[in-house]
Amino acid sequence: MKFSIQVSEGPYNHESSVTAINFVKAAVEAGHDIFRVFFYHDGVNNGTNYATPPQDDMNIQKTWSELAAAHDIDLVVCVAAAQRRGIVDEGEMTRNKKDGMNIMDGFRISGLGQLIEAGIESDRLVVFGD
């Protein structure tokens, strides 16, 4: 079965990112496809590579990145939400004249249409948030 996931809260502040990670791992193990994970609201903070969590804690952003690489999962950060919260890729850096970019490997920034498309293309959409 084809799944898409929406993550609506930031990592560390709320359990929802970790629940989503555990759900994605279990779905992949059961042989399902993850079509897309869409990060919205403060969920876009899952896509920063500027975080340095303590070594004895889970690195949530890196875990997403590794999951995406291992299972070819499309990780999409909403552009409107990202612009509000300072998640920047190369295109955004150039367009909005920022000094740097902070998007994690495996993530890309795109529009809200990607969430709707995920709903259309997938058999199930599961939302994790507050």
């Binding site: 079965m1 799944f3 555990n22 759900f23 791992k25 279990a26 779905a27 193990e29 059961a30 399902h32 199930r124 599961v126």
Partner: peptide, 11 residues
């Protein structure tokens, strides 16, 4: 249920 069971419930 565990996470596997969570996935099964969504299916």
């Amino acid at each position: 249920v565990d996470y596997k069971g969570f996935v099964e419930l969504t299916v």
